[in-house]
Design a protein around this nucleic acid. Sequence first.
DNA 1: GGAATAGTGTCTCTTAGACACTATTCT
DNA 2: AGAATAGTGTCTAAGAGACACTATTCC
Lengths: 244, 244
Amino acid sequence: MDDSEFLAGYDPRAFPAVAVTVDVVALTIREGALHVLLVERGEQPHAGRWALPGGFIRPDEDLPEAAARELAEETGLAPRVHIEQLASYGAPGRDPRMRIVSVSYLAFAPRLPDPRAGSDAADAAWRRIDRLPELAFDHDRILGEGLERARAKLEYTPLATTFVDETFTITELRGVYETVWGVPLHAGNFHRKVLSVPGFVEGTGQTTEGGGTRGGPRARLYRAGDARLLHPALLRPAREEAAG
Amino acid sequence: MDDSEFLAGYDPRAFPAVAVTVDVVALTIREGALHVLLVERGEQPHAGRWALPGGFIRPDEDLPEAAARELAEETGLAPRVHIEQLASYGAPGRDPRMRIVSVSYLAFAPRLPDPRAGSDAADAAWRRIDRLPELAFDHDRILGEGLERARAKLEYTPLATTFVDETFTITELRGVYETVWGVPLHAGNFHRKVLSVPGFVEGTGQTTEGGGTRGGPRARLYRAGDARLLHPALLRPAREEAAG
DNA sequence: GGAATAGTGTCTCTTAGACACTATTCT
DNA sequence: AGAATAGTGTCTAAGAGACACTATTCC
């Protein structure tokens, strides 16, 4: 793998320095809308533009640790945050100063507090997905891939539960799906479907204190079950193919 | 993303060197069995052990180019090879000499010729998945994740067609699924299912020259269609959950 | 002729989704 | 009372899978 290349004359120490960063696509739901954590860059290049939070990996930390640290620097790390690797990007010109390979991570978080701008950013904020400026570097692409991954993951994993409180109603869970997928779902069918998937949610025996603000009976409260995959999956409503 | 960190006192140039490599999980089917491309290491560490082909990225090449180059160095790059990124690994101790971040790629290839050992390896060979030695570094884990990705991708993409010739019979295609998934499939149901998925395969009007070696009618020949996703998907037979 | 295979027909069971309906709670 | 919501019942259409069957080809 690498000795190999020493033989072939490719000593990495002779290369222009390569730096490795992690960038985090952190998603949460606020006021019924999907939000992503962004930081405003204080320095060149792209000073003043918004970007995904991220930074260089440190010598003694693994990649997932670096991603968790970067997220925590902006938000304080909540206990129930889910983090998974997304993809890596290393096009030679993606940062104008030097060769940078970025490993991106996707994070799902329940109601996090407003971020504090880390030492490394002019500002930090949760921004609505549907009202975003153009991002720095290739972060638009990374965010796009993160969103698609998130939408797909809701289909076959119980990760929608990481967007809500520890106990939640089926209607709240449906709200997560509707917000992330951007489509309305049929309340009755969704309800029955969620309860029919083994291990997705488990009842607590409790109900909400009162009905909704606009009426209705008290809803039963559930917590996340122990399933790690959903069988059968909750598929997104069929987007009609453009193909004939 | 990085200016930021300069401010915080993390100049990457002051770090111990970080090297970036690509490692390739290249899969093909030979004699009805799934095979992976491995190289025998000639140098320390792990001299004499088998490993995934890979090597350092070069200053002017993007990550996918590096993966394609590494694969081509061993096999000569066939025109119909599919390559996609798998994941990245950067645990501090994964290579004993220095900090190495590896970006892994997954490749599907039809009947490739026997590999030639590149300049960088003692030997190279297609090895049966079910008869593997323990691999060097963390390559067992990378291979495992590549296999799971491949099995999942056959469900909802037409990538099974990249394992067979440009024209193929439904039975040959079924053989790909059976080999990769490791389960027998019902011939009749598979046949009807494949033809019912829009854009999966398209008929050529041709048939095989003769029937099978053990009899049977001539089979129609198909080529890959233009679908990039399969709707509906071909799901793996339900593996009964251990959960009660 | 006998065996193996390609391809089709048919039936059952499960699931997605549309729609209807009851019961509960808020204003 | 009227409106909104939680949760359930029922019907239909589609797909997965089991099984049966015909036609074709090799030995």
